[in-house]
């Protein structure tokens, strides 16, 4: 999801197949709306936990679904710290020590840059069409807005921890409003809220995404886009470990 956001491909980037033809068709439209082969973005990340509140400024690049590079611009102390996702590998470059560390599987569930995202959130492919059976569970007016609610049930063999995912999009623009993750007993586990519609990368999109863990409702991580450019020329070599250092 997070990766999707960075890629400006959002949640539904790859969602093509669905059990219901119509659901799939709509998801495909949404997919088209957000599709970009490459991207460059600037965004801020505000993290609030019981112990700290911090705001980061970041810059990101992506190419296809396999390559992503994110760099911290501020605060000063962490300036230059970069994360490179290449395929399923995740590397972190630390300018203070001038070293690049490849994260092992045991670090995957660790927090990404102190946020409510895990490193794993970044690496996981959003293979939703493979992992979920997609259905439209509600369509119509809610809170004065025309919306479509998709219910995504994980397939039997899919390597996802969730019991159910619900996605609410605006019926008219197909822009996401809310995504709720449930555990296997169908209790809420975390919620993502999308807001602040504005023109980004030439189209209207929600510029802000907030993630709230359900067991700690007072905490959140909020990402806000300042800049998004799509389909810019980027070479494969841009996403190498060497580049990670030199940028």
């Amino acid at each position: 999801m997070l990766k999707g956001f960075f890629l400006s491909q959002f949640v539904l980037a790859d969602e093509i197949a669905g059990t219901t033809q119509r659901a799939s068709a709509i998801l495909r439209q949404i997919d088209d709306l957000w599709r970009g082969n490459s991207s460059h973005s600037q965004f801020s990340m505000k993290i609030k936990t019981a112990h700290y509140t911090r705001t980061l400024a970041l810059e990101g690049w992506s190419l296809g679904t396999q390559k992503t590079l994110v760099r911290i611009l501020s605060p000063k102390k962490e300036q230059g710290v970069s994360s490179l996702k290449s395929g399923k590998h995740l590397y972190t470059y630390l300018p203070r020590t001038d070293r690049t560390i490849r994260l092992t599987s045991s670090m995957m569930m660790g927090s990404w840059m102190g946020s409510h995202f895990t490193n794993d959130d970044l690496v996981q492919e959003s293979r939703r069409e493979e992992d979920y059976d997609i259905d439209i569970s509600f369509e119509g007016e809610r809170d004065g807005q025309g919306i479509i609610e998709f219910t995504l049930m994980p397939k039997e063999d899919a390597a996802v921890v969730w019991g159910k995912v619900q996605l609410v999009v605006l019926a008219e623009s197909l822009l996401p409003v809310k995504e709720v993750y449930y555990d296997e007993d169908l209790k809420q586990a975390r919620t993502m809220l999308f807001s602040e519609l504005k023109i980004l990368g030439g189209k209207i999109r929600p510029a802000t995404m907030r993630v709230v863990p359900s067991d700690k409702p007072e905490e959140y991580t909020e990402i806000t886009y300042q800049l998004l450019e799509l389909d810019i020329p980027l070479a494969d070599s841009f996403f190498s470990i060497n580049q990670l250092k030199h940028r």
Binding site: I47, R54, P75, L94, T97
Partner: peptide, 16 residues
Amino acid sequence: VILLGQSSDGAMANDI
């Protein structure tokens, strides 16, 4: 040896 952790202010703690 390089250490990488999360410091109390949420920042990326790292040093040689």
